[in-house]
């Protein structure tokens, strides 16, 4: 039961959105997926087309209380960031092993970076979601200085909400690409249909099947499938030749 951690460098980067779609892509690839949200103010249910009043059941709640959307088990544990026994508890529940039978996607709000730091060494993949924006870039040196070399090495990056019509956005994205190199998993384009689907209380795949952000996020989730098979150490995007890049939009 491998764990995939998603975290953001700055609030509002789209980590929760990306985590939801990674979970959906892994589920479509045949994995049995649990999503764990640790946010005290949680918007995860909205990405699954659920009502705003929805509160997710605890990770430890019995199976009959489960909220399942398209086979994905949605759970919450707001105490996890302060709980030093969280990682042992995960291990007791049978997570932290490899294989597709059971996968957990943990969505960590950007403010809980200390918690992310503790969980990443146990994860099969660590995905850091960033925006191609100057204020996000400005935080990169501090974030890199604070993280351990092992955690940096274990982390793959996703650029979210990329607006290719904006010069600064393109330049910032090129800067990030140069900086993180092979560990860039891909980019998700800025797409109005993301908030619109939330407003419609629908899953993005239902509301806007041709959404650019949907296609991009799905490609990123699919790219993470190999991560489920790396026993005992974090999987890292190591890149390939540009020719093997398949999902770039025309």
């Amino acid at each position: 039961m491998p764990v995939i951690v998603t975290h953001g460098l700055k609030g509002g980067a789209g980590t929760t959105f990306t985590a939801a779609h990674i979970a959906m892509a892994l589920s479509e690839a045949g994995a049995d997926v649990t999503v764990l949200t640790v946010a005290k103010r949680d918007t995860m249910p909205l990405h699954f087309g659920l009502q705003p009043a929805m509160t997710l059941p605890s990770l430890f709640a019995p199976a009959e209380d489960a909220v399942l959307v398209a086979g994905i088990d949605l759970r919450s544990l707001t105490t996890a960031p302060e709980d030093n026994d969280f990682v042992p508890a995960l291990r007791d529940l049978g997570f932290l092993e490899t294989g597709q039978d059971k996968v957990m996607v943990i969505d960590i709000p950007s403010a809980e970076f200390a918690f992310a730091r503790r969980v990443i060494p146990h994860a099969s993949a660590s995905v850091c979601v960033i925006n191609a924006a100057p204020d996000t870039l400005a935080l990169m040196p501090q974030v890199l200085a604070e993280a351990s070399p092992e955690n940096i090495a274990a982390t793959s990056f996703v650029i979210n909400a990329l607006d290719e019509t904006r010069r600064l956005s393109r330049h910032s994205s090129a800067f990030i690409r140069e900086l993180v190199g092979a560990r860039l998993l891909g980019r998700i384009r800025l797409d109005e249909s993301v908030p619109e689907a939330i407003a419609m209380l629908q899953q993005l795949s239902k509301y806007a099947p041709s959404s650019a952000a949907l296609a991009d996020a799905k490609a990123i989730g699919t790219a993470l499938v190999p991560a489920l098979e790396t026993p005992g150490r974090p999987w890292v995007a190591r890149g390939s030749s540009p020719a093997s890049s398949s999902s770039r939009a025309a």
Partner: peptide, 25 residues
């Protein structure tokens, strides 16, 4: 620091399977 991490990745045994969505240098 990201370059030093690059060296750490390189030192890891046995390259992981890879599928990167985006081109990069």
């Amino acid at each position: 620091a990201i370059d030093q991490a690059e060296a750490t990745v390189a030192a890891m045994p046995e390259p992981a399977p890879t599928e990167v969505v985006e081109t990069y240098s």
